[in-house]
Nucleic acid binder design. Structure first.
Length: 425
RNA sequence: CGGAAUGUGGUGUAACGGCUAACAUCCCUGGUUUGGGACCAGGUGACUCCGGGUUCGAAUCCCGGCAUUCCGACCA
């Protein structure tokens, strides 16, 4: 993509209505645009990152589930069936927007904050035999939660992206088996998008869902809302909420020996068992023709929150630093020449063409800006590799390459650069 | 949902109760410049969040909303 065609611009000043690092940098670099507290538009650069995160999640989820797309609007009745219309305080309801529509219909709907109420009847309709089980469904979708306090930019929004996976099983053992598969898949995802080393499975309270512990995936992050008790050696953590004397005794654990760290919950998984299948009277027929309860699990990851966490963890004082796997582009190509008929400009154009022909994702800064402005923007946007084509670089034998995360730059020939990026494909 | 702070051109800031609301940046014109957010000249752009009140006079003081941020509670 040519930067001259990118409608967003960078800003030197931080927006005054943001304090969190992720919101400030993503706004300054033109990745997001705030609409309201906790509600952000994804601008082109932001959408590219979000899409990469979601693609990565999708690749892993396709191994263990069927993708579908449920509706964001849901009928009130289904929430009345489970009783959660009374107990889930983040539910948003639609209202007729004006007098005219009020006269037409006074119906109101629930905006989906989670989809157990919708997926269970779908599973019930299609999978009623032991031969159909286990089965699992997932979607990546925009969710709505009326958080009492949206905060920390992308970390806690009222409208956000979520990947939600639901699994259905013949019995508890089968659920447990799948639960472990899902757990592993989640760890693979976090590793792939660059959070592997700092993300820990964390035992937490099960909320309404279960009396047992549930599992959260917590990424070490100062801006996170949670505190976890971490045992790095054994690769396990406990959410502060379950660190009680009672649990210490029950589990035979000395929590004082654990490291206390701030973390952000990037995923969670729950064994729901029969909570929802009972509410919807969902049973299957077993080999003997008997009706049996269906066991269920649910598993969530928040792509927008992941994006925020990655910014919080990897940015420096100059701007964003994207991990390779989710960067909006692989290469930020800069020409320092404004003379569009000059040699260095033409070399840059040719290089841009060769790279994009080879399916390398390149952001080409072809704008008429000063060198300093281009470097500053490049640092702010945070694409992993910067490639500069200028009279100076050509005189030194080629193009200058510099990784965003490194201070060092080096000169390579154009052929060397092309080889580096095209032989991977 | 409780508490606190803040609302001024697109963005970031300034302005004692008193003159045409100032500065920077962005944007537009022209010129100059080209390896770390260049420079010169000119120009556009604000009912000072909304509604009341006090006052001869309100961006400024008071009351009520709304919005944003932070702290706390909450967080399927």
């Amino acid at each position: 993509m040519r930067q001259s065609h990118l409608f967003t611009k960078t800003r030197k000043d931080a927006p005054k209505d943001e304090v969190s690092k992720n919101a400030i940098l993503l706004t300054r670099a033109g990745f997001i645009h705030k609409e309201m507290a906790g509600v952000y538009t994804m601008l082109p650069l932001g959408l590219r990152v979000l899409s990469k995160i979601e693609s990565s999640i999708r690749r892993h989820m396709d191994q263990i589930g069927n993708e579908l797309l449920m509706t964001a609007l849901s009928p009130k009745e289904t929430w009345e069936t489970t009783g959660r219309i009374e107990t889930v305080d983040v539910l948003m309801k639609t209202l007729p927007a004006n007098k005219v529509s009020e006269e037409k219909s006074s119906a109101s709907y629930i905006l989906g904050s989670t989809h157990e109420e919708m997926i269970t009847p779908i599973a019930q309709e299609y999978t009623r035999s032991y031969k159909d089980l286990p089965v699992s469904f997932y979607q990546i979708q925009t969710k709505f939660r009326n958080e009492a306090r949206a905060k920390s930019g992308l970390l806690r929004g009222r409208e956000f992206r979520m990947k939600d996976l639901y699994s259905f099983h013949k019995d508890e053992d089968d659920l447990k088996t799948y639960y472990e598969i899902a757990k592993k898949s989640y760890l693979d995802i976090f590793r792939e998008i660059g959070l592997g080393d700092d993300t820990f499975i964390t035992l937490a309270g099960g909320g309404d869902f279960t009396k047992d512990f549930s599992h959260e995936f917590q990424t070490l992050c100062e801006a996170g809302e949670d505190t976890i008790y971490l045992d790095r050696k054994n690769n396990i953590a406990y959410n502060k909420e379950v660190v009680t004397d009672e649990n210490a005794q029950k589990l035979g654990i000395d929590f004082t020996a654990f490291e206390q760290v701030k973390a952000c919950e990037v995923g969670n998984i729950f064994p729901l068992n029969t909570k929802f299948s009972k509410a919807f009277d969902y049973t299957y027929t077993d080999e003997n023709g008997d009706k049996k309860d269906v066991y269920m699990g649910c598993y969530g990851i928040g792509p927008t929150r992941l994006m925020g966490v990655i910014v919080e963890k990897y940015a420096d004082d100059k701007g964003l630093i994207w991990p390779e796997s989710i960067a909006p582009f692989s290469i930020h190509l800069l020409t320092l020449s404004k003379d569009k008929s000059g040699e260095s400009y033409e070399k840059a154009e040719q290089l841009y063409k060769n790279l994009t022909d080879a399916h390398v994702e390149v952001l080409f800064d072809d704008r008429e800006e000063s060198a300093g402005a281009k470097f500053a923007d490049s640092d702010l946007i945070g694409i992993p590799m910067r490639v500069v084509v200028s009279d100076k670089s050509l005189a030194s034998g080629g193009v200058e390459i510099k990784e965003r995360k490194s201070e060092k730059s080096e000169i390579v020939t154009i052929e060397q650069l092309l080889t580096m990026y095209t032989k991977e494909c």
